[in-house]
Simulated assay, not measured.
Amino acid sequence: MGHRRIEGMSLLEAFGFAPGAMVAAVGGGGKTSLVFRVAAEAVERGIPALVTTTVKFTRPAGLAMPRLVMVPAESAVEAASIALAGEGGVTLASGEGERGRMLGFPPAVVDGLRKPGRLVLVEADGSAHRPFKAPAEHEPVIPAGATDVVVCVGLQVLGRPLDGRWVHRAELAAGLAGAGVGEVVTPAVAASVVLHRAGGRKGVPPGARCSALLNRVGGVEAGPLALELAKRLVDGGLDRVVIADASEGTVLEVMGRALVSAPATDHG
C-alpha cells in the first residue's frame, strides 16, 4: 500500500483524475466542495471542467462557482459544448429549486456530457447536511459512464453517536455496520458502511475506480482515527483514500495501491 504526504498537492493530483474522466461524488460531507474545488484546479491547468448533478446541489460556500448555465435536459449536451468552447469551466443545471438549490439531469443525459479532454464532475447523492450516510433504495444516482466514484466522509462523525444528528439514514447505516443506533462511530463502523456493496460501493459502475475523500472541517489535522479509517478502506479494496480539506483544497494524506498523478496538462 502506497502512502504519501506531499505539501502543495492538489485534489486533482491526489485522486489521479485525468482529462476524459467522469467523477461522481457520493456519500456524506464534502461532495459539493470536492466537485467545485477539483473543477477550479482543472481549469487552472487548462483542462475544461464541467460541474453538474443528477440530484440537487447548492452553491459552494466560500468557493468560486464556474458560470452557471441552465438548460432543459434535451439541450444539455449541446449547451455544455458551446459554453466550454468559450470558457474553461461551466456549472450546468436544469433549473432552480427551493432554497436556491440547483436541479440536475437524469443519469443518461449526464452520460452524454462526457467527452475526450474534458473533466466532468457530478454530485450524485444527498446527505441532508450530515457528514456521514447510508444510501436509501433510490440512492445514489450515479451515471453509468462514471469512470471514478468518490465516497465522501466528513471526519467530524468519528467518535460521535450513530444517530440522526450525525448520520443521514442512521438506521440503514447501523444495519450495514452491524451496530446499534446510538453507538459510537468508530473507524471500523465507518469502514463497514463505506465498503459495503449496499453502502458506499452501491451503484459503482463496473470498471470504475472507487475512492474515498475523508473530509476535515475547520483546519483540524488528520488524527489517528482518520488514519485508521483510511487504512481500513484501502485494505478493504478502495483504489485510493485522500484525507483533505476539500473546501480549502489542502491535501493531508494519500493512501492507495497505485499513486500515479493525473497528466495535468494533457487536454487534447
Rank of each mutant, 00 (worst) to 15 (best):
F105W: 04
R99S: 12
D239A: 12
L176I: 02
V149P: 07
A39V: 02
V55N: 04
P48N: 01
R45A: 04
E74V: 08
K115W: 09
H196Q: 01
R169F: 03
A146I: 12
P224E: 15
L252H: 12
G199T: 00
G100S: 12
A93M: 07
A170E: 02
P140V: 09
P206F: 12
A85Y: 11
R99W: 11
G178R: 10
L113V: 03
E183C: 12
D266W: 14
E248Y: 12
D239P: 10
H129E: 12
E7G: 09
G164Y: 00
G219M: 12
I6P: 08
A83E: 02
V71R: 08
T58C: 09
F36D: 00
G180N: 13
G27S: 06
G88P: 07
T186C: 11
L176D: 01
R232G: 10
G100W: 07
L214Q: 07
P116C: 11
G207D: 09
L63P: 12
G182L: 03
V234F: 02
D125W: 01
P206K: 13
A64Y: 10
L12H: 09
V220A: 15
R160F: 00
L227S: 10
G223Q: 14
S81C: 14
G219Y: 14
V26Q: 03
A49F: 04
R240S: 04
F15S: 03
R169Q: 04
A188M: 13
C210P: 08
R118A: 07
V251Y: 07
L11K: 11
H129C: 09
A136D: 04
I47D: 08
K231T: 10
K115Y: 10
